[in-house]
Computed example of a mutant assay.
Amino acid sequence: MRLRSCVAGLALVLLEGFLGGAALAAEECQAKSTSMDDIIVALNGAPGCERAMKQFEACAYGASGDVQFGEVVEKKCEADFIGQLQPPQMLSYQRELRVCDQKYRSKSGTMYISATAFCRAEVAQRYSQRALKSGKAGR
């Protein structure tokens, strides 16, 4: 029993590191169930990038299923800025996404696939935040 609690504690620490503290987030998943389809509906229904990211953090599987959730968040965040990026900015955005894709490439395990999805969503979230701060979002 003691070993099980140590392993669970270690898993929580690792997950917290990958999700930037999201494993301890107080927000609850607003999906009707833990099914992928219900979580995607909840993410699509989130009113904007920030809320979608919070729901992604709350509903994440911590495994490869998070790729689909992350894609929803990326698209929701991109709606705030993608049409406003000049070619050099678009190249920078794409480069940052590629960095995420490469970051855990040599690692095995589905938690690294999840970490990649979170990295990509966080990049899109940062670009969204900048666009909203500059007042150019969604134009």
Rank of each mutant, 00 (worst) to 15 (best):
K107E: 05
K133S: 13
R98Q: 15
Q30R: 15
L12Y: 05
R95V: 05
V123A: 03
G21A: 10
V123N: 07
D66S: 02
L24S: 15
A63H: 04
A79N: 07
T116Y: 00
R51L: 14
G45A: 12
G83S: 11
S128W: 12
S35I: 01
V123L: 06
Q86R: 15
R95T: 12
K75W: 03
P88D: 14
C100P: 06
Q30N: 08
Y93T: 08
L19R: 09
I39H: 02
L19D: 05
A115W: 00
G65V: 00
V7A: 13
A131Q: 11
A117S: 14
S5P: 01
R95A: 08
M53R: 13
G48A: 13
A52F: 11
Q129K: 13
E96G: 01
V99E: 11
S134G: 11
S106I: 05
S92L: 10
R4Y: 07
I82M: 15
Q94D: 11
R95D: 04
A60C: 07
G70W: 00
T34D: 10
L15A: 10
G45R: 08
G109L: 02
L14M: 12
G62P: 02
C100H: 07
G70S: 03
L10D: 06
G109D: 01
V7F: 06
V13H: 10
D80V: 10
K54C: 00
E16I: 05
A58L: 12
G20K: 08
D38Q: 06
N44S: 13
L10T: 09
G21M: 10
F56R: 06
C77P: 05
Q68V: 06
A121N: 08
A121L: 07
V123F: 02
K32P: 03
L43S: 08
C6T: 09
L24A: 14
K107I: 02
I39Q: 13
L132G: 07
V41T: 12
G109F: 00
Y93M: 11
E74C: 04
Q68W: 00
F118I: 06
A46G: 06
C59I: 06
G17H: 08
P47E: 15
A131N: 11
A60N: 14
A63Y: 01
L91I: 08
Q86I: 11
P88T: 07
K76M: 13
A46Q: 03
F118V: 03
Y61F: 12
L15W: 05
G135L: 15
C29D: 11
R139S: 15
D66M: 03
A31H: 06
D101A: 12
Q102E: 08
A137R: 14
F69A: 01
A79F: 08
G83C: 02
E96T: 06
M1N: 01
L43K: 05
G135W: 10
D101L: 02
V99Q: 08
Y93I: 07
Q30S: 14
Q125M: 14
Y93E: 08
Y127P: 03
L132A: 14
G62M: 02
E50L: 15
I82V: 14
Y112Q: 02
G109C: 04
P47G: 12
Y127R: 14
R105L: 12
K107Q: 14
V123Q: 12
Y61I: 01
I39F: 00
A117K: 00
L10E: 06
K75T: 15
